[in-house]
Every structure is written in C-alpha cells, then in structure tokens.
Design a protein around this nucleic acid. Structure first.
Length: 439
RNA sequence: GCCCAGGUAGUAUAGUUCGGUCUAGUAUAUGCGGCUGUCGCCCGCAGGACCCGGGUCCGAAUCCCGGCCUGGGCGCCA
C-alpha cells in the first residue's frame, strides 16, 4: 500500500476538543483507527488520539470517491490524518461527527493484533506486557500513567513551594547503601560496581549544604520478591531535610499526600472514570500508631507477634481490614530498621523510624537519621556492615552533619493507591521483575 | 530462595475429575460476502489451537516422568 505523507498538514484539534458549537467548521485531525463499523451504505470510523475518540462518518454516496477509496482499506490501528467538516448530531455520544473531505493513511498495521484493543476480550497481564506499546493505546491502561503524571507534578509543586531543591545522585555506586545482598552488580571499567538501591546516603550528605532536597528517580533491587507490589526497578520519591525530626517530615509527608490526592481528584476525572475508580482526599493529620499499639491490636485480633519481630504481610492484611485509610506506624524496634535510623533518646531499643501505610501496603518509610558519626558506626557494626566500606559517607559526618530526617515514597505503590490497581506491573510502563527483563 | 497453581486458535475460555461421538466447543479477533445511523452494530461463510520431549495404553488435550514458560503467595521491602 502506498502511504501518504504528512505534507503540510498541521493538527488543529485533538478529538476531545471538537465540540457541537464547532458545527460546520473545518478541522485537521491525526490519530489511529480504533474501529471501523461498516453498515453498507454508511461507514463509521472511530478515530482515536491521545485525548480520546471521535467518529468520522462516511455516507458512501455523498463523499468524494478518493475519500471512499481511502476509507475502504482502513483497518484497526492504521495511523491516519483526517481533514473534514464538523457536524453537530444527536446520533453520537459526543454530539458531533466529522465528515471527511480528505483522508491520509500515514501507516498501516498488522491485520491480527496480539491483544484485543476494543477491550471485548481482555488479555492477561503477561500477554499485555509483552505487547505493552499496543496495550497502552487502550485508554483504561494509559489512564494510570496520566494519574501518575499529575500526582508527581503535584508532589514536585508542593515540595518546590516548601523550598526543596531537586537533586540527582548517582545510579552507579561502589558500595551498598543498606547492606549487600540485594544489589545488581555492574562492570565499571573493570571495577566492580552496583546499581543504587536508594539515594539514602547521598541525600543525607546533601542536607549539610542544601538543607532541603528531594530526588525522583529509578532505583534497583535484586530481591527475589515475586509479589504484586514489588519491582526490581522502581521509582522513588526521596526527601531529606536538615534540622528536622521524624515528626517534622511526617507532617510534611501527610501534606504532600493530601495535596497530591486533591490534585488527582481535580485534574484526573476522565482518567479515574476510565479506571472506574473514585479518588478520595484524606483528612490530615493521619492517625499514628506505635509499633507496640499495633502489636496489641493484632493480639486482640488473634494474631500474636512476639515483640521485636517484623509485622508479617498476613498481619498487615488484618490491620488493613480495620484501617481502610492512611496511617503511620512509629516507634519501631531499632534493630528492625536500617542502620541510619536514629534510636530514641533514653530508649535506644526503639527508634524514630516510621512507615506510612495504606491499608496493608507500605507506601513510605522514613525517620530521623543518625547524625553522630560514632553512633552511626556502632549501628553499622550491629548490622554486620563494615564501616570501612562506607568511609566516603562517614567522612561527611566530620564536616558538620546537621540533625536531619526524611522519607521515600514508592511512586508505583502510590499510583496503585491512587488508581485502585491491584498489580504494580499495571502502573509501571515497562516493569522489571524477577521474571521479566523485556520488552 | 521457598511454597502453591497453571500452560488448549491472535485473545479469552470450555473440555482434564473417572483416557474413548473431541473429527476439540464457545466468545471475540481475522479474511470474504451482505446491510444507510452504528456506537460491545447485526447477519452469513471461511481459515485458525491441545507448550516441548519421553513414557504407559488398543487408544492421551486428559494419566506418569523430565524440561521450558507463566501467574500467585511467603520472606524482604518502596
């Protein structure tokens, strides 16, 4: 088939911007054929673009022969341009249709597509991910990423407003951030290096100059976690603030979450409708439960966890049933948290680390950090880490490290909460996990 | 890493319990034909599949063994 070129055509409207009051006006549209319905004497072409769909109507006896000939060969996913006249009508859901005066076929597509893009026969997640570029052409599958976009824009907006500086720390590092086991090794000019699992140490160091920093970026964990809420490559929203405590950054966090939920509910009504999900804006402050309180609650629910042990996923699910909202868990046993979390003054078996939960999912973790070098080294040793391999980090603590605190949001997990998706792979464009490295 | 479950047309599934009208059904998609107001259009026709290898048996989609692949759960974590 001979393809047409774009020529001098310029899009005048997205499909969603064509409205009934434009009756009679000329438009130039670009997009893809989503569906062709041919009734014999009349043919309907559903044109899809980024913003939605619109009906191109071809009364076969009343359009130019060239237009009819072009429309004869159209198939699903053909990339086309349409010049035509807007017609107000009560026979389409949108109240408009476009009668074409010229159609340009810009590219063709395979007759048999690997997934059903009309959604009549939904494909399984692994089939969809194998054909992800096509999968994302379906509005309900792309919607989560538009929600994520607006959520991240809101987070940035809020943090900028609070004076945070956006920074970029290395992805290629020489030693482990929190321990060794779960890092991906890479060859760095013959030297052994790793993909960063977190910007933790760098963002802490940056508090001694920039004071309030945040970073948004991908991090890598080689954990053999085969669940619906783990990825090997995920996006973290990391915040660190000088002269602040856990309580300070918890207050910041709940404001960020509330602001983000508000932005999503205001800007993403179309996306949420496509997702069949309702956004809620949570009240703040979020409830705070100590680790001890959570253990007591669990005991009354019949789940017995010995003090000091981690709360199992099963136990979190029990908690999540009672608490269908955002809540903090504070005052964790010191040994259960990372070495850089500050033990409580006068009660060193507990620490100033916290988790923000949504139902049973851990969304955010954070805490007050240790700013005193000797204590930090001591905690490293308790965790079986060798301070020598952290010497470049530790030296910063000789140069005026301020007291500081921070947190990290799992962006995909937040997107799950905001979109109601039950599998994290739905909210990563090209998810990476234990089983998947392609596409 | 450990524990479950599962691989049937492009997609989604029925059939597997208890081997035999299964020449493998259905929906959707695809191709061809018909239809002037569809919007999950409709109607007719056609082509299209039992993951791979081995075994048991008169006979295997179905039972057994091995492999490969996938989904889910646990621990860990965001």
């Amino acid at each position: 088939m001979n393809l047409d070129s774009l020529g001098d055509w310029v899009r005048t409207y997205y499909s969603s911007n064509v409205t009934p009051d434009m009756d009679g006006s000329e438009v130039t549209l670009f997009g893809w054929v989503q569906e062709v319905r041919d009734l014999g004497g009349i043919r309907f072409i559903i044109l899809q673009d980024r913003e939605g769909t619109l009906q191109v109507t071809i009364p076969k006896k009343r359009v130019a022969p060239e237009v009819l000939a072009k429309s004869d060969v159209l198939q699903k996913r053909f990339s086309i341009g349409v010049k035509g006249t807007v017609k107000k009508t009560n026979m389409t859901p949108r109240g408009i249709e476009v009668i074409p005066s010229e159609i340009r076929i810009l590219n063709i597509a395979a007759e048999q597509l690997p997934i059903d893009i009309t959604g009549k026969t939904p494909a399984n997640i692994e089939v969809r991910l194998d054909a992800r570029a096509l999968d994302l052409c379906m509005e309900q599958n792309a919607a989560a990423f538009r929600v994520q976009h607006h959520a991240l824009a809101a987070i940035r907006d809020f943090l900028f407003g609070k004076g945070f500086l956006e920074v970029h720390t290395p992805r290629i590092i020489a030693s482990a951030t929190e321990g060794g086991a779960e890092l991906f090794a890479v060859d760095y000019f013959g030297q052994k290096a790793f993909l960063a699992q977190s910007p933790q140490l760098y963002k802490e160091q940056l508090t001694m100059s920039s004071e309030k920093v945040f970073e948004v970026g991908p991090f890598f964990r080689a954990e053999l976690s085969h669940t619906r809420r783990h990825l090997s490559e995920f996006v973290s929203v990391d915040v660190e603030e000088a002269f602040a405590s856990a309580e300070d950054v918890m207050r910041l966090l709940e404001q960020v979450i509330q602001y983000t939920c508000k932005a999503v509910s205001e800007k993403c009504s179309k996306e949420l409708a496509a997702l069949k999900y309702r956004a809620t804006v949570p009240e703040i402050p979020f409830k705070r439960f100590t680790y001890d309180e959570v253990l007591a609650d669990l005991k009354s629910e019949g789940v017995d966890i010995p003090w000091g042990e981690d709360i199992s996923t099963e136990a979190f699910r029990v908690l999540g049933k009672e608490r269908g909202y955002y809540y903090f868990i504070t005052d964790w046993p010191t040994h259960s948290k990372a070495f850089y979390i500050k033990p409580k003054d006068g009660k060193p078996e507990l620490c100033e680390g916290f988790d923000l939960m949504w139902r049973w999912i851990e969304l955010v973790s954070g805490g007050t950090r240790i700013s005193e070098k000797a204590l930090l080294m001591e905690r490293m040793k308790e965790k079986g880490l060798n301070p020598e391999s952290f010497k470049y980090h530790l030296q910063a603590f000789d140069w005026g490290m301020p007291p500081h605190a921070g947190w990290a949001i799992g962006l995909e997990r937040l997107t799950m909460v905001l979109t109601g998706k039950k599998n994290i792979r739905e909210v990563a464009l090209y998810p990476r996990d234990q089983m998947r490295l392609t596409p």
